[in-house]
């Protein structure tokens, strides 16, 4: 049932948006092309940082350093039943968008998208934002010296996202 809703939402949204565009007499094809061009630019803009970070993460795994790091952390992570393979993603997620995308890619190609790790990584990535980057540009544009409790509240929310991603995956798929 949930799988069916998940699969149906995208086609339904396309249908609704195109139909609404027709009713409002929007030149839908021209609009689409204009928007797609925007998407093209975004994709090319992230490529250089993606190359830098995916190279670094692939090297980090191949050198054995990733394994050492996650093994070192695993006793603490086991206390909250958090899979150690996902710890690097949880740390990178609030800091760098391209970095965490590179880690998700790495997890998906190493464990597969239908694996437990692959599913948690996907859910974690989809439900969170690059917290520090967002805060930096949002408070950077105004003259604020003291952001008070913002970082605390935002990181607390991220922590909730990391933990619930794991529990929701167990609940939904296993």
């Amino acid at each position: 049932m949930m799988g069916y809703i998940s699969a149906a939402i995208v086609p339904l949204m396309f249908f609704g948006i195109i139909l609404f565009g027709f009713i409002k007499r929007v030149k839908i094809f021209e609009s689409f092309v204009l928007g797609a061009k925007d998407g093209l630019e975004t994709s090319f803009r992230i490529l250089p940082s993606l190359v830098a970070l995916l190279t670094a993460i692939t090297m980090f795994r191949a050198s054995g350093a990733l394994g050492i790091m996650t093994d070192f952390l695993s006793p603490v992570l086991e206390l909250v039943r958090f899979p150690k393979e996902l710890a690097p993603l949880a740390f990178m997620r609030p800091i760098s968008g391209s970095g965490s995308l590179a880690i998700v890619k790495d997890i998906l190609s190493n464990y597969g998208p239908d694996s437990f790790q692959g599913r948690v990584a996907s859910i974690m990535m989809g439900s969170t934002e690059t917290t520090f980057y967002t805060l930096a540009i949002y408070f950077g544009c105004v003259n604020v010296k003291d952001t008070r409790y913002t970082v605390k509240a935002a990181l607390l929310a991220d922590l909730v996202a990391m933990l619930t991603s794991v529990y929701i995956t167990r609940l939904f798929f296993y």
Partner: peptide, 12 residues
């Protein structure tokens, strides 16, 4: 694809 569809949503 996504940016294109969203542009339609915005214009409409």
């Amino acid at each position: 694809l996504w940016s294109g569809i969203m542009e339609i949503a915005r214009e409409s």
